[in-house]
Design a protein around this nucleic acid. Structure first.
Lengths: 229, 229
DNA sequence: CCTACCGATCGGTAGG
DNA sequence: CCTACCGATCGGTAGG
């Protein structure tokens, strides 16, 4: 593999998991299998490495953006698809969410500029789409489009980034099947079986989508089966 | 002021703003106005200082908890008040939200335990309250109570922590009055006037409350005018 | 609470 | 891409 690409991948993980200050160049170099000085041959400084990691993340985001905007502005009446696209991007690699969140905490002013430049434009598009939906009476008139989109983005990014701690601690596994496997009665459960973690993530993700939907659309989005009245 | 209390306050700010690794004992000591060695006389190690800061945060939370649980479980039908209590706690000092978010990112396993111990119990209470509301037909039957509360907590904490970057970049100031002050036509606006920032925060916060409400209650929360059925 | 000091590690450079 | 090295800073200790 291209050395630069491998360094970027390793650095991405390191910055996302331990933070920019917590991750050392020595540590990144070790994981790549080169000397620290060699790493600094490819990236002139730690800060330039950080910027390259961010740039790479933006590039990947630009891959899914066109699809997202087509779904939003084009024919499809499914704003749910926009959400799906968003959720999938960050769920595909939770370190993307963690990295962004850390950058926002570490360098809020820089990130405000970056978000204003790379995110605000398509948020505007989605917000306009919502305004159309409001005009057609499909969406709640009380929705504040920009603020709504901001809250949804926040929910998705932060939700993915904090899922292991928040969902892991607050959500029990779903009942699954009644008493299938014999779980020893003593302790509550294993620290976290991967399957249990994903079950929690699913419950959490389903609720996220429900909240986003229910707070946007006026009626059940599924063909109304003569609700009450 | 008590030296320990002053150190805790300064350390809280430092850890929240720069992260545990990014904040140095030297820096904290300087801001307190003592020597680093003196700081380590009050707190045996940097890690114990971190734990003391976290403990202090939990103590303050325990101050508002009883009020919150009374509102939720007691007579008041206002789950909105629970939200208000939550929002107010973190808005009163955004560093509380930043610190918690950083700890979740830095030590997810530790925080999962801490949340399971100190947060899960009252989440259960609120979730039970929601189940009652569902049984009475006041709240959507599709709500997953635990997952809902988790998402709302996530929204509030992350929302407060990232407000300056996310809301700051995505939300324009509200129209306020039409063309009251003469804003020079050239640049878009000042980097961020404090009043503009708070206006954004208000729009963002209002929408957060709306989303939480609309996705929970079946009808307009105002007195049901003979609900359907 | 201070002065004085420690080994370890940090990001980064010189030179090949 | 490497070896060899740098000054600065880190958390922490000894001793008063």
């Amino acid at each position: 593999m291209d050395a630069r690409a491998e360094i970027l991948a390793v650095a991405m993980r390191a910055f996302a998991e331990r933070g920019f200050d917590g991750a050392s160049l020595q540590d990144i170099a070790d994981r790549v299998g080169i000397r620290k000085a060699s790493l600094l041959y490819h990236f002139e400084s730690k800060d330039l490495l950080r910027l390259a990691v961010l740039e790479q993340l933006l590039l990947r985001w630009n891959d899914v953006l066109p699809r997202l905007l087509m779904v939003a502005a084009g024919g499809g009446p499914r704003i749910g698809s926009v959400m799906d696209e968003l959720v999938q991007f960050f769920s595909a690699d939770p370190n993307r969410a963690r990295l962004l969140l850390r950058e926002i905490l570490d360098r809020p002013d820089d990130m405000r500029r970056l978000i204003g430049k790379h995110v605000a434009p398509w948020v505007k598009v989605v917000a306009d789409y919502i305004r159309e939906g409001q005009a057609r009476g499909e969406m709640h008139a009380t929705v504040d489009p920009e603020a709504y989109v901001q809250q949804v983005i926040n929910m998705v990014v932060s939700g993915v980034a904090t899922a292991s701690s928040l969902a892991g601690a607050l959500i029990d596994e779903p009942p699954v099947a009644a008493g299938k496997a014999s779980r020893p009665a003593g302790r509550r459960r294993a620290p976290t079986t991967p399957s249990a973690a994903s079950a929690r993530a699913e419950r959490s993700g389903k609720e996220l989508l429900r909240i986003a939907r229910e707070s946007l659309f006026r009626e059940r989005p599924t063909r109304a089966t003569k609700t009450a009245r």
